[in-house]
């Protein structure tokens, strides 16, 4: 007995030892830079190549300026707008395709090929896609303008990228086009994880495909859909490559996102590292709140499960006691 305990103690140290590389790399390359960024947010650090700084008399000066900055407010709005017009159609299309692909009565052929093609844009470099789309929507000549001419939708070439809403719409479309395949695959995996007995029971009860989808599939996917929602929201807050390279935030800041704002503050113009750092911290707070929600959603489920198990156990014990009595 004593020997066994000693043994387990001696192995436990390897848990710590094997975690050292991760912890060290995390501390050096993530934790310390976040801390450093936070500090810079309270200082006067600006100018190309500068690294020395002093804390401002009013340490929150940068934060106040950023919160009042119209471009920053604009970037938050843009991020929200572009995320919304991408996400709603994305989840609806993904759900529709999920319903079709998992319909047992009417099996579609070529599902594997469709999945491969729908997911494909997701794996292509976003930088390339941004420049490809700005070329496709080129003015005065470009493939989309040619298409409009061919279809008789326009006589004169249209400069799509000058219009704020068109520019936002194209970015939202690119995001939609890159991500609906991924969302669909995730949802299909979710459906495959549902207890088949539920579907069998519905079949026996004579439920239609529509009823099965709305009363069994959709409620069972709730957690996965919430997960998709929150991860997409966090991903949307970080949108950088596409707005940066598509129109560099233009026209008139209509596609400026928070990440592009941070980059432009710090690495162009007058290199305002301190303002960019303050904006980064605000972004961090928003993402932390969103992550907190996600974390809660994922943890809660396990806790509820455990609670239910305990309840069952207690009930069974009580029943057994009663039976004995």
């Amino acid at each position: 007995m004593k020997g066994k305990r000693l043994k387990s103690v001696s192995y436990a140290k390897y848990g710590y030892i094997f975690s050292i590389p991760f912890v060290l790399a995390f501390l050096i390359f993530t934790a310390y830079p976040i801390f450093y960024t936070a500090i810079i947010g309270f200082t006067d650090l600006k100018g190309l190549g500068k690294t020395d700084f002093t804390i401002l008399e009013n340490p929150f000066h940068n934060f106040q300026l950023i919160l009042k900055n119209p471009s920053f407010q604009r970037s938050l709005q843009n991020t929200a707008i572009m995320w919304t017009i991408n996400f709603i159609p994305q989840i609806l299309l993904a759900l529709l395709l999920t319903a079709w692909f998992t319909n047992q009565r009417q099996k579609l052929r070529g599902q594997g090929a469709f999945k491969v093609l729908f997911y494909m844009p997701n794996i292509i470099t976003a930088a390339t896609i941004a420049i490809l789309f700005s070329t496709l929507f080129g003015y005065p000549m470009g493939p989309v303008n040619d298409l409009f001419k061919m279809l008789g939708l326009a006589n004169e070439p249209i400069n799509f990228l000058l219009d704020k809403w068109t520019a936002r719409g194209i970015i939202a479309f690119i995001q939609f086009w890159m991500w609906y395949g991924q969302t669909m695959i995730v949802l299909i995996a979710g459906v495959l994880g549902i207890n088949p007995a539920l579907f069998e029971a519905a079949e026996i009860d004579g439920a239609t495909s529509r009823q099965v989808f709305f009363y069994i599939t959709l409620p069972s996917l709730r957690t996965i859909m919430l997960f998709t929602l929150v991860t997409s929201l966090i991903g949307g807050m970080q949108m950088f490559d596409i707005p940066k390279l598509f129109l560099n935030g233009g026209p008139d800041n209509a596609t400026l996102t928070v990440s592009v704002f941070i980059y432009n503050q710090a690495f162009s113009g007058s290199y305002l590292y301190n303002r960019a750092a303050a904006a980064s911290m605000l972004l961090f707070i928003i993402i932390a709140i969103l992550s907190g929600i996600l974390f809660y959603l994922l943890r809660d489920k396990d806790a509820i499960k455990a609670k239910k198990e305990m309840k069952k156990l207690r009930k069974a014990q009580a029943a057994a006691r009663r039976a004995e009595a």
């Binding site: 976040i34 650090l45 941070i262 590292y273 972004l283």
Partner: peptide, 9 residues
């Protein structure tokens, strides 16, 4: 993005 400025410095 949130650690980018500190990381760069």
């Amino acid at each position: 993005q949130v650690s980018g400025i500190g990381f760069y410095q």
